[in-house]
Amino acid sequence: MSDTTPLLDVSGLTKHFPIRGGFPFPRTIGAVQAVDGLDFQVATGESLGLVGESGCGKSTTGRLITRLLEPTAGKISYRGQDITHAGRKRLAPIRSEIQMIFQDPYASLNPRQTVGKIIAGPMEINDINPAGGREKRVRELLEIVGLNPEHYNRFPHEFSGGQRQRIGVARALALEPKLIVADEPVSALDVSIQAQVVNLLQKVQQELGIAFVFIAHDLAVVRHFSQRVAVMYLGKIVEIADRDDLYGNPRHPYTRALLSAVPEATADETPARERIRLVGDVPSPISPPSGCRFRTRCWKATDKCASEAPPLVQVEGNKPGHLTACHYPETAETVPSPRLAKDPEAAA
């Protein structure tokens, strides 16, 4: 963490989607608690990974940061400025500094516009005329993302999935942003193409010094891309740490289970291949469990977990900056290797 103001400072961020029902006078009968009290910072030029399973609120978080969604509660500060409820006008200059890359390279590009027009779009909207003209800038951008500048006049359907994702990256770079929110940018791509796009994003991040919020469900990809990683479960951050701490010394049982469930492409039959078997499914975010939200699937849960929500703190044995929300954090002694399994039945 830098000693100056962080680029992005999020505190208590909450988003509840109301559920309306009833006839003939619909009223609010409940809420999907998609995101519930997130605190995190992103420093200039830093890459923060957000991981978690579907429905944990990671995409909602991305959309809140970019202000595509209106937060229910909490505060978002960008470079010290409170933008939580900023209006259109005040957001305009900030919007050009925060850009987004989407998951689906087919749905996120207008099929009726040429690549040149798509990439120039953000410049048009913000009325920016770079030296030498927009077309020259677009050609530069195409070159940066590894596409042929001569393809300026082509349409998206003439490109493969990986190339389309590059176009999406070029569009995000057009306004020289300070922060890019990338929502599952490689998960729709073939394995051999994923690595190409990850390398491109890494190059962009390092050479242009752009901060990233990298949202993904693939723990291996996140490990490769992010300096810091936050693990989310059912709308809450359960653990956040520097990459090496999180992967080398996961303290939250959920982080541990998640890591142990990733199948690795090795043929070794070592104990590291054993898993923590999580039983059941993620509960509904409409009525999340009381206390710790992971307790219904946790093998260590006690009465305390049901009554008291564990705070996200630096638990004993954590390095500074490594925060865990658990009453009974895992320790290096209980599980010698981060990938070594615990048998849930034996522990219960």
């Binding site: 193409i193 990850v198 693939d218 490769h224």
Partner: peptide, 25 residues
Amino acid sequence: LGLLSSMPSLEGPVDVPLNPIPGSP
């Protein structure tokens, strides 16, 4: 070989670029 070496893993080295297979299918 290309598939295997282009995959990021939970244990390999970080801060080095991945080895993608160039081109597309």
